[in-house]
Simulated assay, not measured.
Amino acid sequence: MMKTTLKTLLAAACITMAATGVAIADQDGNGERSGHCTKGGHHNRHHAGAHGFGQPHFLHGITLTSEQEDKIFALNHAEVPKVRDQIKQRQQLHQELRQVSLAPQFDEAKAKAIADKLATLEKDGALNRARTENKVLAVLTPEQREQALKNKEQFKKHREERQPAGFRGHPQQRPDVRS
């Protein structure tokens, strides 16, 4: 019974981390949305989570002790309700903003208030992700941490290499557009 419950909790955490990982992996360091990975012609997005028990991508290839895995799992599991609530709030606010934009008369004040709520939600989410990442890195040994930081840098370079020229976050002058 306990084993089944643990598997269920583990599966729920993995799914949630993968879902939030899409949002994280879909942004570059400036909060801009990134492109699709086209390496090898596979057009899949990179997912920041789900490299095993809901671990962040930067832990891929790092051998963790059972105790470290448990601590990281507990950190990620604690974030699940917060992330789920943020997703629900974000969806609701986007729906409200769509309704304002489709109204016969555009309500600038209402649209601004919704946009401000969305901005606060995104800011809080980014802060929470950074805080959690710091806690995960604190679980690692100095050698593991060094490897994790190298993995993060390699992931960032890979993502940047795969973005189309002139894509958001990577400004390049387009020949068909004049400044």
Rank of each mutant, 00 (worst) to 15 (best):
Lys3Trp: 10
Leu6Cys: 00
Leu9Ala: 10
Ala11Ile: 09
Ala11Ser: 05
Ala12Met: 03
Ala13Met: 05
Ala13Trp: 09
Ile15Phe: 07
Ile15Trp: 02
Thr16Met: 08
Thr16Phe: 06
Ala19Ile: 03
Thr20Asp: 12
Thr20Val: 04
Ala23Leu: 01
Ile24Glu: 12
Gly29Tyr: 02
Gly29Trp: 12
Asn30Tyr: 02
Asn30Leu: 06
His36Ser: 11
Cys37Asn: 15
Thr38Cys: 07
Lys39Met: 06
Gly40Ala: 15
Gly41Tyr: 03
Asn44Thr: 03
His47Glu: 14
His47Arg: 12
Gly49Trp: 05
His51Tyr: 08
Gly52Met: 15
Gly54Lys: 01
His57Ile: 10
Phe58Thr: 08
Leu59His: 01
Ile62Met: 13
Thr63Asp: 03
Thr65Phe: 11
Ser66Trp: 15
Glu67Ala: 07
Gln68Arg: 09
Gln68Pro: 13
Asp70Ser: 06
Lys71Glu: 14
Lys71Gln: 11
Ala74Lys: 08
Ala74Met: 03
Ala74Ile: 02
Leu75Asp: 03
His77Gln: 13
Ala78Asn: 09
Glu79Leu: 14
Val83Trp: 14
Val83Ala: 13
Arg84Leu: 15
Asp85Cys: 01
Ile87His: 02
Lys88Pro: 00
Lys88Gln: 05
Gln89His: 02
Arg90Ala: 07
Leu93Met: 14
His94Asp: 10
His94Val: 03
Gln95Glu: 08
Gln95Val: 01
Glu96Val: 00
Arg98Ser: 08
Arg98Tyr: 13
Arg98Asn: 12
Val100Asn: 06
Ser101Gln: 11
Leu102Ala: 12
Leu102Ile: 04
Leu102Met: 08
Ala103Arg: 09
Gln105Lys: 10
Phe106Tyr: 11
Ala109Asn: 10
Lys110Tyr: 11
Lys112Glu: 05
Lys112His: 08
Lys112Thr: 13
Ala113Asn: 08
Ala115Asn: 10
Asp116Thr: 10
Asp116Ile: 00
Asp116Lys: 09
Asp116Arg: 02
Leu118Phe: 12
Leu118Met: 15
Leu118Gly: 13
Thr120Val: 04
Thr120Glu: 09
Lys123Thr: 07
Asp124His: 11
Asp124Gly: 07
Asp124Met: 11
Asp124Phe: 01
Gly125Ala: 11
Asn128Trp: 15
Arg129Lys: 05
Ala130His: 09
Arg131His: 15
Thr132Met: 09
Asn134Glu: 15
Lys135Gly: 09
Val136Pro: 09
Val136Leu: 11
Leu137His: 03
Leu137Gln: 12
Ala138Glu: 14
Val139Gly: 01
Thr141Gly: 12
Pro142Thr: 02
Pro142Val: 07
Gln144His: 10
Arg145Trp: 01
Arg145Asn: 04
Ala148Asn: 08
Ala148Ser: 03
Ala148Trp: 05
Lys150Gly: 06
Asn151Asp: 14
Lys152Met: 08
Lys152Leu: 03
Lys157Gly: 00
Lys157Glu: 00
Lys157Val: 03
Arg159Phe: 01
Glu160Phe: 00
Glu161Phe: 00
Glu161Ala: 05
Arg162Val: 02
Gln163His: 14
Pro164Lys: 06
Pro164Glu: 04
Ala165Ser: 02
Gly166Thr: 11
Arg168Met: 02
Arg168Ser: 03
Gly169Asp: 04
His170Trp: 14
Gln172Tyr: 13
Arg174Gln: 06
Pro175Glu: 06
Pro175Val: 04
Asp176Ile: 06
